[in-house]
């Protein structure tokens, strides 16, 4: 996913929503222009984006809702030097939907740099499945391995589909295999099922590690 084309795809999909339904195009156009020249105006516009642009999935990009897309575009319209600070403020001051939008924006906004990593930690600490899953997109490459493993386990525990985790097989290591196997043991002892996607992951990892592939655990520890 290249950031620029992805932003263009979002903009096109948001504007392609059939006429007569949200988004309010005039509001959006004006809001995007305004945050470029007056970054301090972002807070109120960011909060209003849901009621102005709608909250339904976009017909052309069903992985995205209109409010998420609008908020990502608002962040992208900021002067790049404003972005790290404003992204953090929008997250810290945001309701759950605003927080989710910031998390989804992070991988699309290179100017944020590492400033979003503490936001991922905050989101993963919650038990709000929308936030935990939004935190595990491509930007989660910047999470240290221990935090990332805990987040994957949290998905399994809270029923978040593992498809939310970007680069799952690439990053899964022997330590995650051990943790998943332990969790599977607990579930078995309790007579409860593991989610099917977690069982499948454990099967894949077990084959990999039994066949003598060197465990990558530790290599990326912070």
């Amino acid at each position: 996913m290249e950031p620029e084309p992805e932003l263009e795809r979002l903009r096109a999909a948001l504007l392609a929503v059939p006429d007569g339904r949200l988004p309010d195009r005039d509001w959006l156009t004006e809001a995007l222009a305004r945050v470029g020249s007056e970054p301090a105006a972002l807070g109120r516009l960011f909060a209003a984006a849901g009621r102005r642009c709608g909250r339904e999935p976009l017909p052309d990009l069903p992985d995205w809702t209109a409010d998420d897309a609008a908020r990502v575009l608002l962040l992208a319209a900021l002067p790049p030097t404003e972005l790290p600070g404003q992204a953090e403020t929008c997250y810290r001051h945001g309701d759950a939907a605003e927080k989710r939008a910031v998390l989804r924006a992070l991988p699309l906004l290179p100017a944020v740099g590492d400033a979003g990593v503490p936001l991922l930690h905050d989101a993963i600490r919650t038990n709000d499945t929308r936030l935990v899953s939004a935190a595990l997109g491509p930007y989660a490459d910047r999470l240290d391995q221990a935090a990332w493993r805990q987040a994957v386990l949290k998905c399994v525990f809270t029923g978040i589909p593992l498809s939310a985790v970007s680069g799952l097989d690439r990053r899964a290591d022997a330590e995650l295999t051990t943790m998943l196997a332990g969790f599977a043991d607990e579930r078995r002892a309790a007579g409860r099922d593991m989610p099917a996607d977690a069982t499948a992951l454990l099967d894949r990892l077990s084959v990999l590690h039994r066949s003598g592939t060197p465990a990558r655990s530790g290599a990326e520890e912070a």
Partner: peptide, 12 residues
């Protein structure tokens, strides 16, 4: 409502 998963953390 939208944005929630079946079998989420609270129900579990």
């Amino acid at each position: 409502g939208p944005g929630t998963f079946e079998g989420n953390s609270i129900l579990r």
